[in-house]
Write a protein that binds this DNA or RNA. Structure first.
Lengths: 160, 160
DNA sequence: TCGATATAATTCGTGAAGCGAACTATCTGG
DNA sequence: CCAGATAGTTCGCTTCACGAATTATATCGA
């Protein structure tokens, strides 16, 4: 209850501030790779597999018209491409170009490195505890597959 | 190490995804209060006290030209106001209007409520642990005073 | 088979956001 | 008193995000 070291902060404040922190790191890492944060996020999602525009909208929480623009700009930069969907000629599949693939692997690794550094002041045990607790929060809340881990969602579990 | 429940995720992934989650909740709460997330954040910062443009730029991590626009728009909506700084006639103090104060108290409380709900699946003990660990991360990384808690940074500790 | 409806995506117009460069006004140190 | 430094604003630009309207294709039912 003491105030000598600012005292404990509530869960909401802690979550909002850590989110602020992560956003800032993510934005800086994006910028240094010549990406906007949104384009970086798009690439990270596509790292797992190609998606249709509708699926991407659901994953990223964007209106479809917003997504058209984002994909346009990222495509203009040569990082993603639209391919016709053989099953449905209305639809497209958005996937990484080889340049986009190369860039996102670098961007993803570097961003992970920087985000991990944020918890460098914690012991390994505490860091694992934090990862586990946060992992349960994101699992409970059905966070979409943004920022997938390389071996996460093994092929057998993929639906598309 | 098993894969049956997706297995543990790394600290970086956990942080990025929880940040994604928090952003979404924050954005939705803002929207429902007639605010953009940026305007909501500005109001939350000003909840503690008025600040100059330069200070706000440092706190929010924005270029000064970006801040001019943000404060302009929020002022146009009647939520903040610029007041001359008696000590320095170049400078300005940005503070909440009474309408802005009323709105931000409501917005802040409601947003906290929603963010807290994200951890509803955790036991009280786990939630406290999570808050404490995240609290250390934000403290270690010098997160600016965004989303201050009502009794945090008591008047005696304020520098301005 | 044909027509109604649903779905996938794009286009268009609008406003918010963010930046850097250039500018104005004031303050401060020598 | 003048040469910087500092506080903010303005300007031009790009990105981002949305909703409404549109086009094209798919699908379902009669």
């Amino acid at each position: 209850m003491g105030k000598q070291d600012y005292g404990p902060i509530g869960i909401a404040t802690a979550l909002v501030r850590s989110s602020f922190l992560v956003n800032a790191v993510y934005a800086e890492s994006s910028r240094e790779h010549g990406l906007t944060p949104q384009q970086g996020q798009l690439l990270c999602v596509l790292m797992a597999q190609p998606y249709g525009m509708g699926e991407l909208g659901a994953i990223l929480g964007l209106a479809k018209s917003s997504l058209t623009g984002l994909v346009d700009r990222t495509e203009r930069n040569g990082l993603v491409q639209r391919e016709p969907n053989p099953q449905d000629s209305r639809a497209v599949r958005v996937g990484l170009t080889s340049q986009g693939g190369r860039l996102v692997r670098e961007f993803y690794a570097e961003t992970c490195r920087r985000i991990e550094k944020l918890s460098a002041g914690l012991s390994a045990t505490d860091r694992d505890t934090l990862a586990s607790l946060l992992g349960r929060v994101v699992l409970d809340n059905q966070v979409p597959m943004v920022f997938i881990e390389p071996d996460e969602g093994a092929p057998a579990a993929r639906r598309y």
